[in-house]
């Protein structure tokens, strides 16, 4: 029954996270808007569902996926697993082959499981009247996250400065924005921040810290950071690219 008390603690933690939000909404509703909410009962049960949902979700992740995922990040970056290369004190980046593959797979799959991304994708499908498909958008974001995290692990291994990648990414985003359909731009910009949430952050952080502490010459404190920034940036690029490809294909169909 030990896990029950743990579940209770997670539940309490979630309540504590939701309280400020509920407080703000209630205060403004009562003092500023001063109009009753439509369907207050339904909304309230909705909030309770969100609470229960997040608590169960986190608890389940802690029980099943996080320990394995974090352990895996450590094992894959272990010098013993990487092989003899690291003994010489000089590591070739190719030795970390499995780390890049793992990083990409974890990025892809955890983005697909991310509740906030599901929420935003559903909203986008609803507003666009179905022109944007929730699944297509999530796949595009997941591809971006995969690419971003893989590149981020490569950066940790090679030890290149973080800002070079980020600024290069910004330039790509700016160029893409100039050529993208206007309707997608806001959504694309949002998809970056949305991806880094409940599922992705703990797994990616574990990977970054594991990697930075095992690669010779890297410090987990200084080089372990930056993976989240990659995960934030690359989905923007991939969603813009997805819309450009869709627009290009639509044009080609029309011109044929």
């Amino acid at each position: 029954m030990e896990w029950l008390s743990h579940l209770w603690a997670t539940g309490l933690g979630t309540v504590r996270d939701v309280l400020p939000i509920a407080g703000i909404i209630l205060t403004f509703q009562l003092l500023v808007i001063r109009k009753p909410v439509a369907n207050p009962k339904r909304v309230l049960t909705g909030f309770v569902y969100v609470l229960i949902g997040i608590a169960l979700f986190l608890e389940g992740l802690e029980m099943a996926l996080f320990p394995l995922g974090k352990l895996m990040a450590q094992q894959l970056t272990d010098p013993v697993f990487i092989g003899a290369n690291s003994v010489a004190g000089h590591v070739q980046w190719q030795a970390y082959f499995w780390v890049y593959i793992f990083a990409a797979c974890i990025g892809f799959s955890s983005a697909l499981a991310e509740p906030s991304l599901i929420a935003v994708a559903l909203k986008a499908e609803e507003i666009s009247g179905g022109a944007i498909k929730a699944t297509g958008l999530r796949l595009a974001v997941a591809l971006g996250a995969a690419l971003g995290i893989a590149l981020g692990t490569y950066r940790i291994v090679t030890g290149t400065a973080l800002y070079i990648y980020i600024i290069a990414g910004y330039i790509i985003v700016i160029v893409q924005t100039a050529y993208s359909p206007r309707v997608i731009v806001g959504l694309a910009y949002d998809s970056g921040g949305v991806t880094t949430s409940t599922v992705t952050v703990p797994l990616v952080t574990a990977l970054g810290i594991g990697l930075a502490s095992s690669v010779p010459g890297r410090s987990p404190l200084l080089d372990g950071f930056g993976l989240i920034a990659f995960t934030c940036l690359f989905p923007i690029i991939s969603v813009l690219a997805y819309s450009q490809i869709a627009a290009w294909r639509a044009r080609r169909v029309r011109s044929v």
Binding site: V43, V48, Y49, G53, G60, A64, I118
Partner: peptide, 24 residues
């Protein structure tokens, strides 16, 4: 068991999203 909790949790979250967070 963990996976079961995650699936249940996500289900509740989605329901609450459409019923509570989005409307408010």
């Amino acid at each position: 068991v963990g996976m079961l909790l995650v699936v249940l949790g996500l289900g509740f979250f989605m329901q609450g999203l459409e019923q509570g967070l989005f409307p408010i």
